[in-house]
């Protein structure tokens, strides 16, 4: 079913909207959740909660990209769940992706105020747009979609170790950009 038709089902308050969403984007959202959370039941709950969140927010929302909209909800729910789990010491989760992102943390030390989430997103978006298309796609596929480095390496036809090095340099490049922008986290 086309995305516009699924969104229309939500607006008509037709419960088939959830089933159609699961059919089309269930695997996609499960993959995003499983890239963040180790525990299977947590992933499933996040995906279920994604459907409820979608149901609650459409209307009034009419997303331009349903896939990105749902994926974003799943990412937010998953990281929230991860924070809860860590507080309860029941799931390490997302160690790989988050530890990689630590390479991007700018070295602070100044007296600047911590940056707002929206402003940080804007800087990252500008940085992404300054990259060549292939690097931009690689970064987003790895850190938004959560694709494994080995999968991306396969798509590129390079060894995973080669791509890991390239991703590392992209992270350092982002770190330099954040430092240049005076970002403090």
């Amino acid at each position: 079913m086309e995305d516009t038709a699924i969104i229309e089902l939500y607006w008509l308050r037709d419960e088939n909207a959830v089933g159609e969403t699961d059919k089309k984007y269930g695997a996609f959202c499960r993959k995003i959740a499983s890239n963040i959370l180790d525990l299977h039941e947590d992933c499933e709950e996040c995906v279920s909660d994604t459907w409820w969140k979608a149901w609650d927010t459409m209307p009034p929302q009419r997303p331009q990209s349903l896939k990105a909209y749902l994926g974003r909800i799943t990412r937010n729910l998953s990281i929230s769940r991860l924070r809860q789990n860590r507080a309860q010491k029941r799931d390490a989760g997302a160690t790989s992706m988050l530890s990689e992102l630590e390479d991007c943390i700018p070295s602070g030390g100044g007296v600047e105020q911590e940056i707002e989430r929206g402003e940080l997103t804007r800087i990252i978006e500008n940085w992404l747009m300054s990259l060549k298309a292939e690097d931009r796609a690689l970064f987003v596929r790895r850190y938004w979609y959560g694709d494994a480095v080995s999968d991306l390496a396969f798509r590129l036809g390079v060894k995973p170790s080669q791509l890991a090095k390239r991703m590392y340099n992209l992270r350092l490049n982002l770190k330099e950009t954040l430092e240049r922008e005076g970002v403090v986290l």
Binding site: N76, S99, L101, E102, I105, R117, L120, T121, I124, Y143
Partner: peptide, 12 residues
């Protein structure tokens, strides 16, 4: 701090 970057990436 890496989660702040994760959150910001979420909203691109």
């Amino acid at each position: 701090k890496s989660e702040k970057i994760y959150d910001a990436i979420t909203d691109i």
